[in-house]
Write a protein that binds this DNA or RNA. Sequence first.
DNA 1: ATAAACAATATTAAATTAGTAGGAATTATA
DNA 2: TATAATTCCTACTAATTTAATATTGTTTAT
Lengths: 153, 153
Amino acid sequence: MNLKFSTRARYGLRAMLELALSYNPSEPTPLFQIAERQGISEGYLEQMMTVLRKGGLVRSVRGAQGGYLLSRVPAKITTGEIIRCLEGPLGPTGCVSEEDPEICDRSDFCVTRTLWEKVRNSIADVLDGTTLEDLCKDAEKVRRSREANMYYI
Amino acid sequence: MNLKFSTRARYGLRAMLELALSYNPSEPTPLFQIAERQGISEGYLEQMMTVLRKGGLVRSVRGAQGGYLLSRVPAKITTGEIIRCLEGPLGPTGCVSEEDPEICDRSDFCVTRTLWEKVRNSIADVLDGTTLEDLCKDAEKVRRSREANMYYI
DNA sequence: ATAAACAATATTAAATTAGTAGGAATTATA
DNA sequence: TATAATTCCTACTAATTTAATATTGTTTAT
C-alpha cells in the first residue's frame, strides 16, 4: 500500500472509458473487444466488469451479440464513482475512510489524521469533478492534435 | 495497493511529529520514547528512522543519552518530504511517478494518465503545503480547545 | 442446434506488508 | 574502566494481497 491505484481501478477505468467512447445505448460492447483494444486479459477484466455491474455502473446483455453498456450517459458517470466501485471508499488511511472509518484512540486529537483528511478530500475533488464525458473530450482533443501533427512528421 | 498510505508513512510521520513537538537541537529523543508515546513497536519504528536518517530528515546520536533529532527546524520540513522519503516518489500510478515514470505504449494519448496526473498533483499540493510546524500549531490548537472543554465535562 | 457471450467459483504464484529477533557498535556516565 | 543506554545492521517470517488463470455453467441471437 504505497498510495497507488490497483490495476483493478486502472483497468476498470480504461474499460469504462472504452464504453464511453463508443457509447450507444442500444449496442453493447463485448468483453473481448474492450480487452483487445485496451490490451487487458479477458479473464481478468471480466472480474472488474462484474464489480462494475454489481455497482450499477454498467449493464450486461448476455448471449450472442451481447456485451456491456454504460448504465448512464458518460456525462452522468464520474471517475470518483468508478474508482470507489472498484476499490471501495476513498481514504488514504483507514481512519479517514469515507465509509465507517476505523476508530483509533487518538482520533480526537490526532493532527496527522487531519492531514490525511485533506489528502482524501483533494483526491475526491479531482475524481468527483471528472466525468467520463470529460475524458472523452480529452481523448477527442488528443486525437485531433495528433491528426494535425501528422502533416509535420 | 488500494490508494492507501503504508504504515511506514503513517508511523514515520507520527515519529517526525513527535520530534517536532519536543524540538530542541541539543537534546535528542531516544527511540523508545517516540515508540512509547506513539504506541508503535520499537523494532519496527527503527526501520523507519533508518530510512529517515538516510534521507537526511533526521540525525541520530549514538550511545547513552543518544536518540534522534530533526535535521532542520520543523518549519523547514514538509510532510511531502517525509512521505516521499518513506514511500518513494509520489505517483498514484507508475506512469505518473514523479521520478522516472514507467513508459507505456499509450503514454502519449492516454487520457486516464492525465487524470492520474491531476490526482498526483493534488496530493503533492497538500503534502508539500504542510510543514511539521503547521502540524505542531494544529496540535497546540487541539490541546487548548481540549483544555477549555475540560471545564464543561 | 450452435456459437457467442456473460456468470460464477476456485486456484495460484509472486510480491508486499508489517512486523520480530538477535547481536554488534558506540558513547555518556558512575 | 566497567556498565548501561542507545543506535545500527542483518536476517527471518507469517499473513495478506495482487494479478492473474482455469474451468465449468448459463443465456440468447441467429
